[in-house]
């Protein structure tokens, strides 16, 4: 019996995920547009562009810290650096451990508190990597300025932002602290499952 080539429709593609990232890119563009508007108001030919850039990066870093405390404060910004945390929450939800799906009993348990606390530690690590990425991006832009090169498209800037985030995230990933917290995150979620199973 010869088997035919297996097929699947394009519906198997998670268009929602792609669209979400496309919207995130548009939001990135909008933030950069506002940023360049303000830059052009304050910078003239005599301004040291590196120094002029610094307050804006400091501002974004402060906004990241605020969005770590409450992602709703600046959802456009939060969706960039919280990408993997969001993916983790979606994974947990797909396994039946979304925040809406859990029982009140679990919500009040030590297991859930421990999971929440580990999640906070995990977010702190991600926040640190995101801020480090901005430092790196600022440094790269200054290096570009010193060589007389300029970034001439939004996509180029976005790609630089991605590169910087991948670098600092990758460094974080390889540290023992991250491995420990990542392990605790999974283990504490599993204890919530066991708790939920026991109580149901």
């Amino acid at each position: 019996m010869t088997e035919q080539t297996s097929t699947s429709g394009p519906s198997t593609f998670d268009a929602g995920l792609a669209l979400k990232q496309a919207r995130a890119y548009l939001a990135f563009g909008e933030q950069i547009r506002q940023f360049t508007d303000r830059m052009s108001e304050t910078i003239n030919d005599q301004t040291d562009k590196g120094e002029a850039l610094h307050p804006y990066f400091a501002e974004i870093k402060a906004a990241i810290t605020r969005s770590a405390e409450n992602p709703n404060i600046n959802p456009e910004l939060a969706q960039f650096w919280l990408l993997i945390a969001e993916t983790w929450c979606e994974t947990a939800a797909s396994l039946g451990m979304g925040t809406e799906a859990i029982s009140d009993e679990l919500r009040q348990s030590e297991a859930w508190r421990s999971y929440q606390s580990t999640q906070s530690e995990y977010l702190s690590l991600l926040e640190g990597a995101a801020r480090d990425a901005l430092d790196r991006m600022e440094q790269r832009l200054n290096e570009l300025a010193n060589t007389g090169k300029t970034i001439t498209s939004l996509r180029e800037l976005y790609n630089l932002w991605v590169d910087c985030n991948e670098e600092t995230y990758g460094q974080m990933l390889r540290k023992p602290t991250y491995a420990a917290i990542n392990g605790q995150l999974i283990n504490s979620l599993l204890r919530c499952y066991q708790r939920q199973d026991t109580s149901s």
Partner: peptide, 21 residues
């Protein structure tokens, strides 16, 4: 799904972001 997360988490900005852009 846990394996998917593990692989995505190795390079999230590229695999779950830039790729779709």
């Amino acid at each position: 799904q846990m394996l998917n997360f593990a692989f995505l988490s190795l390079s999230p900005f590229r695999l779950a972001g830039q790729k779709y852009v």
